[in-house]
Design a binder for these strands. Structure first.
Length: 485
RNA sequence: GCCCUCAUCGUCUAGAGGCCUAGGACACAUCCCUUUCACGGAUGCGACGCGGGUUCGAAUCCCGCUGGGGGUACCA
């Protein structure tokens, strides 16, 4: 048996910034395609004339790329089944819809939005299921004539046959059965504007683009039933469906812009200095565990080991603390040159040119340990860049007023020219030697020095700090303290 | 309302009838390391929603209940 080449896709609609859920769905499709040496396609479902915006398209494409998700065909690079943008296929959808009308599988419906609202309201009042009453199936020629004369512009509805069970084997959820009666009556496939509706356009596109697998959020389950009906009407084979559980917040509610604001957008994490490797890793393992249960893996590794069989059926809760853990892991373990490069934009308020590239890398290496996101690097590294170190009143009035502290500082100041700059251990040893001389050690010795240099009693390794700051900067800091006005 | 779906520590999960007095990770607590914070290491806290079955034996299978979530548009 020859298996067709796997083709999976992500079909975002450019009605908002790249959402965490969209990113994860994209990731799963991408990983699945790569795992099976197939193609991954990106297609834009921009049939919502009201909410679609090109700015969102850019945001989505760049966000996906940033995460390491690359497509083989898409609106930006083309491909054998172009166009990859639904608004460029309007006529095509309409043609297909007309074919369905000719076959008696669809028809024009002249019901106005107001009439439909009234119908729904009535159904709501009587506590019955909300559905279109298929009235358009039985128009007399006179009625149609009248509606046309009134200037009503029809939609095209697809006939949803009643009393049938649509079922499919979902690659994640297993067997799913839905009765067509619960689908809401004959469905609109082309709006009165002439633009195809999502449920119709997806099927036409997935058929056109020869998609073999449709992996999407479980909020689409009912849509899948509707879409299967369309596949059948078109006489086309069904792809394999897989419905991925959704992502919740800590309150077990769907992640939504309304409730969570920017926190649902990939962009927000990008701006805050989260590593794409961390987001990818975190997103991937939210509802999927590799067979060997490893938790840290790269995109490339995930492409090797991804498996739909191991995708969980239940929703995952987005927990920023866990993301932070992944992020701090990558901040600590990615090559220092790369982290330094990424850190630059978070340090842009400082005059970075005063340090060489390798010195800068040392600084980043020193402070990266405690960071959960790069946005926190500026406060952590600030003292390296300013000769006027901010010192709290508590320290300047307390610790730094003590006699022993002043002694330590003036001793350090005096020995500046003998410090082995560039040698972290050597610098530390010099301080220790001064301590020995003064009979001071521990906090009494280190804290004053640390406070003078960093403005705090906690911070990176003292020897390294001294070594990187170098004679000029250390001198400036000490003198600023020793000659108060 | 109706339809679909889900159910293991606070969170992500392992678990596909005996290997489970339920394992790992995050978080949290304590301790160790350290001049400090962080890192790292150790220990601890901590879960199979409930009720019936089936079976010699159930977290695992079946049924019901409860609870959560999603859907129910001329949105996607």
């Amino acid at each position: 048996m020859t298996q067709a080449k796997v083709r999976a896709r992500i079909a975002p609609s450019p009605t908002g910034h790249l959402h965490l859920g969209t990113a994860r769905t994209a990731l799963y499709n991408f990983l699945f395609a790569r795992k099976h040496k197939g193609d991954f396609i990106l297609r834009l479902e921009d049939t919502d004339e009201v909410r679609s915006d090109d700015a969102y398209t850019d945001d989505i494409l760049s966000g996906l790329k940033w995460l390491g998700i690359n497509w083989d065909e898409g609106p930006d690079i083309g491909g054998p089944y172009a166009p990859y943008k639904q608004t460029e296929k309007t006529d095509h959808y309409e043609n297909v819809a007309h074919k369905l009308i000719e076959q008696g599988k669809a028809y024009f419906c002249y019901a106005t939005p107001e009439e439909l609202d009234a119908l729904r309201e009535e159904q709501r009042q009587s506590n019955s299921a909300s559905r279109y009453d298929n009235r358009g199936r039985h128009y007399t020629p006179e009625q149609v004539d009248k509606y046309v004369k009134e200037g009503r512009v029809p939609v095209i509805r697809f006939k949803v046959e009643d009393n049938r069970v649509v079922s499919w084997h979902d690659a994640i959820k297993g067997e799913i059965q839905i009765n067509t009666e619960d689908l809401g009556g004959d469905m609109v496939i082309v709006k009165s504007s002439g633009i195809a509706i999502y449920n119709f356009a997806v099927v036409v596109d997935d058929v056109d683009m020869k998609m073999t697998h449709v992996i999407r959020g479980e909020d689409h389950i009912h849509n899948t039933a509707k879409q299967i009906l369309i596949y059948e009407a078109l006489g086309e084979p069904l792809p394999q469906f897989a419905h991925v559980p959704l992502i919740f917040d800590l309150d077990r509610q769907k992640l939504s812009k309304r409730k969570h604001g920017e926190a649902v957008h990939i962009n927000k994490y990008r701006k805050d200095g989260y590593m794409p490797e961390a987001i990818m890793n975190y997103l991937a393992q939210m509802s999927w565990t590799p067979a060997d249960e490893r938790e840290i893996f790269t995109v490339a590794e995930a492409c090797e080991i991804f498996d739909l069989d191991r995708v969980s059926k239940s929703p995952a809760v987005f927990d920023i603390k866990r993301l932070d853990w992944f992020n701090s892991h990558y901040i600590k373990s990615l090559p220092i040159a790369l982290i330094t490069e990424r850190a630059r934009e978070f340090l842009k308020d400082f005059e970075l040119s005063q340090y060489s590239q390798s010195e800068l890398e040392h600084i980043v290496a020193l402070v990266r340990e405690g960071l959960s996101a790069l946005k926190d690097i500026a406060p952590a590294a600030a003292f390296f860049f300013s000769d006027k170190v901010q010192i709290s009143d508590e320290l300047s009035q307390g610790l730094l007023k003590q006699e022993s502290s002043l002694k330590v500082l003036s001793k350090v100041h005096a020995s500046l020219s003998q410090m082995p700059w560039g040698d972290a251990k050597g610098c530390k040893a010099s301080v220790d030697a001064i301590g020995k001389e003064l009979g001071l050690k521990g906090k009494d010795l280190y804290w004053p020095v640390r406070a003078a240099l960093c403005g705090a009693t906690s911070g990176p390794d003292l020897g390294s700090t001294l070594s990187i700051l170098g004679e000029r900067r250390v001198k400036a800091r000490l003198e600023a303290l020793m000659q108060p006005c």
